[in-house]
Design a protein around this nucleic acid. Structure first.
Lengths: 144, 144
DNA sequence: GTATTACCTACTTTTGCGGTAGGTTTATTG
DNA sequence: CAATAAACCTACCGCAAAAGTAGGTAATAC
């Protein structure tokens, strides 16, 4: 259907949300879920992925929650989507671990798909989370 | 999973196949299916789409089959994929006929997806079927 | 009129996405 | 220490869309 799944879109939204609130210490899942209108349980599974890949860290217990591990400008959109999309490969035969295509030699379209792959990743890697944040406003409690 | 579905990939392969054999008159589905190793029945449903959009014409009866309606250089990949993919929209909210997103005003990622949309369509529209054909060789019965 | 072909409608199967349920561990607070 | 609040973990469900199948009808050539 759509190229980017809900999961990937949610992940990106959440990363932006956390970037905008990065001065607030650890943010509980509940809070993010409410702000972004995503079910807590579903969001949990997304955050798990992001934590495992060290884009976020989680802290358990009272006062715990999630926070970024880097500055927003150091996360590319590509990195986030490649994690949550399972595959940004344009076609099945270019996915990681795909069985080698017996037609590859005579395949007229392989170059097309590889080119698409480059175009996609180039685009996504050229945008960072910082680029997507709302501009700072009076009232934001940013320290910087 | 993959961005481009089997249906779209098949459609493209078939269009290239027909371009390479465009001097042979009407080509029966059976022949294309064999050459491309696609089940006849599934291929049929794909060709139906292409015929309805006038990328191909079909002729029934003995000696019938399918043929291109234009020169290969006049088909863009984008046109073929937009037909067979149902939607090349990057995200659900940009699909044709999608309900308006209530978050659109505050959406941080809308520009990202629109940009992606442009990148994708730009790429696909820049490649034609002729670009994907095998180079002419001795033995090809091309007239030109 | 028979063979051959496209054309049409409907069905089945499979897969992955989106979402849910319930429990376990870790930390803070009083 | 008990209660609470949080992340963390495993497993499962429902459904829509993708992929593929079946069987028949209409047109054309010989």
């Amino acid at each position: 259907m759509a190229i980017i799944s809900t999961k990937g879109r949610y992940a990106l939204r959440v990363m932006i949300d956390m970037a905008e609130h990065r001065r607030d210490g650890y943010i509980p899942l509940k809070e993010i879920a409410q702000r972004q209108e995503i079910s807590e349980k579903y969001l949990e599974s997304i955050l798990k992925t992001l934590v495992r890949a060290r884009l976020l860290t989680g802290l358990r217990g009272k006062g715990g929650g999630y926070r970024l591990t880097r500055e927003p400008s150091l996360y590319t959109v590509g990195e986030i989507l490649r994690l949550t999309e399972d595959s940004l490969a344009p076609v099945a035969c270019l996915e990681a671990g795909a069985p080698p295509c017996p037609r590859a030699g005579e395949c007229r379209t392989l170059k097309l798909w590889k080119g698409l792959n480059d175009v996609l990743n180039g685009y996504f890697d050229s945008v960072t989370v910082a680029d997507l944040m709302a501009p700072a406003q009076a009232g934001d409690n940013y320290i910087i």
